[in-house]
Nucleic acid binder design. Structure first.
Lengths: 349, 349
DNA sequence: GCAATATGTAAAACCGGTTTCATGTTTATA
DNA sequence: TATAAACATGAAACCGGTTTTACATATTGC
C-alpha cells in the first residue's frame, strides 16, 4: 500500500549464521542435495522457521535458469472458449507448483512480438501459444531460445513438413468438426447453407472453411461464394453476416458459423428480424462455449475439447521440462464432437 | 520443444567487450543513467543490436528488487464476472509494460496461502486480490512484505477501523446494489421474495444479504428466514434453491439471487418445472455477466462495474509503484446500477 | 590395522545485471 | 591561467542464491 522499501527478507547467509554453518550447507539442505548430517539439517530448518526464511526466486533463477513460470498467450478473452483453456492450463500449472503468466495479444502482431520479448526477459520455463499467428522467423527465434513450447489450436491441416512441425502440437481436427456440422445440416435437407467464416487470413478459420466445403463436395453440392461471409470472428460479424443473408432474394435455409460467438451474433440478428430459428432458418456454431446451451433455441455446435487441449498442452510442457518426454515433437489431435441441440432441428411432434 | 539447454543469451559483458567499454557503461546506457558520450552510446547500441542482446530479468531483479510482474488472484473463472476483471487488469498491466501472473484460489484457504508464498518468491511488484477472504494475519504479512496491494470487491460494509483499511480498496457498493434489486421487486408488488444468498460465511455475500434485508425493512416488510437459501455461489446452488422454493406450500412470487450464476441456475430450475418467468415468478440476479442478456427471458440484474473496478485497481497499483499516489490508503467505491430486463417485469400490453 | 570409500562441511567462484567509488578528462568560470 | 564544475568511464562491490572444489572425518573392506 505504501511506497516504502520492502522489508528485506532473511537470506541464506542469515540462516547460515543463525545455524552456525556455511551458506552452501544451507543451500544443500534447501535442495536436498549431497550429504547433510541430520543434526545440522535440524539446526538449519529451525533457523529457517525462526527467521521465516523464503528463498529469493530471482537469485535462484539467475544461477539455475529456471523461473517456475509458464507463459500462456491467447488472442483474447471475449471468447469464453479461451477462458476454458486458461482454466485447464492453470490447473496443471498450479499442480506442478509453477505460476502462470497470462497474455492476450488481441490478435495484434506487435503483441506477439512482445510475447517473444517477455519470454526472453522472464525466462519462462515453458510457453503455450493458443491460436496465434506467429511467423516462421518468430517460431525460429523461439526455437533458438530453446524453451519447451506447445502450440495449440492452430492448424492441423497444414501440419506436415513445416516450421511448426518442430514443435509440440495439441489440437482438434476442426476441419472434421465443421464437416460434421455441415453434414448434419445437409442431412436435415438443407442445400443452401450460409457460412460465416471468421477471418479469411487465419488458418484456424480456413481450416474450418475447408470442412464446410468438403461436406458440400461429398454430397454433390456446389459451394456458392455469395453464401460465404468473411470478416471478423466476433459476435458483431455474426450479426452483420446474418443481416446480409436476410437481405438476399433467396436467403439460405441454414446458416453455419465458424464459431459460437459468430453464431450468437447471427441468432440475435434473426431474432431482431423476426426470423425463427430453427423453423425459418437452421443455425449451427462451433466451440461449444457455455452460452451455447443457455440461449434459446439452444445452439447446435461442435465441441472441440478446449479443456482437454489446455490440460494436455500443459502436461506436455511439464513432461518436456522433467525430461519424461524426449525426442521428436508430438502431435496430439482430439476428435471433434457434434452436439445437436434445438437450433438445427425442427421438432415434428 | 527439445530438452537441450537453452541457447545462452549474450550478457552485458559480451556487449562491453564487443563495444570496447566496461560493463558498467553498458548498464548505464541501458538505463539512461548518468553521462554517456554519444559516440560510446552508439557503439554500445550497435553491439547490442548485433548480438541481439536482451537483458536478463532475473539478474536485474536480484539487484533492483523489481520484477515487472503484477499478480492477480481471483477465486475462480467459472464466473465470467472475474474474467471481465482480469481483462481490464491485463489491459492496464500491458500498457505499463508489465506482465501479469494470474492465480485462481478456487475459494480454498490453502491456495490463498500459496498466493502469499508466490508473492514472496517472485517478488511481484504489485498485488490485486479480488474477493478473497484473507485473514488478518495474512494481510499483515502482506503489509510486512510491503508490496502495493489493492483489495477489491471484498466488503464495503465493514470498511472502517479494520485491518483492511490499511490497504487500497476498489469496489462497488453491493449492499446498495442488492437494495435496488429488491426494491425494484417490491415496487412490482412482490412481498414474498425468495433469496439465494451464496456462501453465508463470505462477507461479499453477507453484504448483499444486508441490502436485501434493508429494502424489506424500509418497506415495512419482514424478512422470512425460510425464504433465504444459503449454500454455495454456483449455478447448481441456484438450481437447488429454486427447487426448494418450488416445493414450498406457498412459494415466493419473486426470487432474488446474490449473483447471476445463481440466477441462471434458478432460471433453469423454473424452466425444468414448467414455471414461467416472469409470469409465475419474477427473477433478478446481480453482476450483469454477459450471459444475463442472452438467456430468455433476459435477466434483470445489477451492474457492478467489474471492468471499471479492474482498471481502477490496476491503475492504482501503478500510481503506488511510480509514487504518483502517496499517503493514506484510498477507497474507491463505484455505484451499482439496476438493469431492468424481462425476467422481472410482466409485460402488460 | 590400513587403505579405500563414504560422509559432512567450508570456502570460493559464479550467475548477469546495478550501483558506488574513484579517477581522468573537458569545459566553464573567475 | 588557475580552478571549480560538468562530463565520461572503469574497477569493484553487491544482490542471494547454486555449485564446484577441497579438505576433514567416519566408516567399511580386506
Amino acid at each position: 500500500m505504501t511506497n516504502k522499501i520492502r522489508t528485506p527478507n532473511p537470506t541464506i547467509y542469515d540462516i547460515a549464521k543463525a545455524a552456525g554453518v556455511s551458506p552452501g550447507t544451507v543451500s544443500r539442505t534447501l535442495n536436498n542435495i549431497g550429504y547433510i548430517k541430520d543434526e545440522t539439517r535440524q539446526k538449519i530448518e529451525k533457523a529457517m522457521k525462526d527467521l521465516k526464511y523464503i528463498p529469493n526466486r530471482a537469485a535462484r533463477t539467475l544461477k539455475t535458469k529456471k523461473t517456475g513460470l509458464v507463459m500462456m498467450a491467447i488472442p483474447d478473452t471475449d471468447n469464453p472458449f479461451y477462458v476454458d483453456m486458461v482454466k485447464a492450463v492453470q490447473d496443471v500449472v498450479k499442480y506442478n507448483g509453477y505460476s502462470m503468466i497470462l497474455y492476450y495479444t488481441e490478435g495484434k502482431k506487435s503483441d506477439e512480438i512482445k510475447v517473444l520479448k517477455m519470454l526472453h526477459e522472464h525466462y519462462a520455463d515453458g510457453l503455450i501459444l493458443i491460436n496465434l499467428s506467429f511467423s516462421k522467423e518468430h517460431l525460429k527465434e523461439i526455437e533458438r531460445i530453446n524453451c519447451p513450447l506447445v502450440l495449440s489450436s492452430m492448424c492441423v491441416s497444414t501440419i506436415g513438413g513445416r516450421e511448426e512441425d518442430r514443435f509440440d502440437y495439441v489440437g482438434v481436427d476442426t476441419r472434421k468438426g465443421m464437416y460434421l456440422a455441415v453434414k448434419h445440416l445437409i442431412m436435415q435437407g438443407h442445400t443452401s447453407i450460409g457460412y460465416i467464416g471468421g477471418v479469411k487470413e487465419l488458418e484456424v478459420f480456413t481450416e474450418r472453411y475447408e470442412g464446410y466445403c468438403s461436406a458440400f463436395i461429398e454430397s454433390g453440392l456446389k459451394v456458392r461464394e455469395d453464401l460465404v461471409f468473411w470478416k471478423n470472428y466476433s459476435e458483431t460479424t455474426g450479426y452483420e453476416a446474418s443481416k446480409y443473408f436476410i437481405s438476399m432474394k433467396e436467403r439460405p435455409t441454414a446458416v453455419c458459423a465458424a464459431n459460437d460467438m459468430l453464431a450468437l451474433g447471427a441468432l440475435r440478428a434473426f431474432e431482431d428480424s423476426g426470423i425463427k430459428v430453427p423453423e425459418d432458418v437452421a443455425l449451427v456454431g462451433m466451440d461449444n462455449i457455455d452460452t451455447a446451451s443457455r440461449v434459446k433455441p439452444k445452439l447446435t455446435t461442435v465441441s472441440i475439447a478446449q479443456s482437454e487441449i489446455g490440460r494436455t498442452a500443459a502436461e506436455l510442457i511439464y513432461k518436456r521440462l522433467n525430461g519424461d518426454e524426449k525426442g521428436q515433437s508430438k502431435k496430439i489431435i482430439f476428435e471433434p464432437r457434434l452436439i445437436v441441440r434445438d437450433s438445427s432441428i425442427i421438432f415434428t411432434g
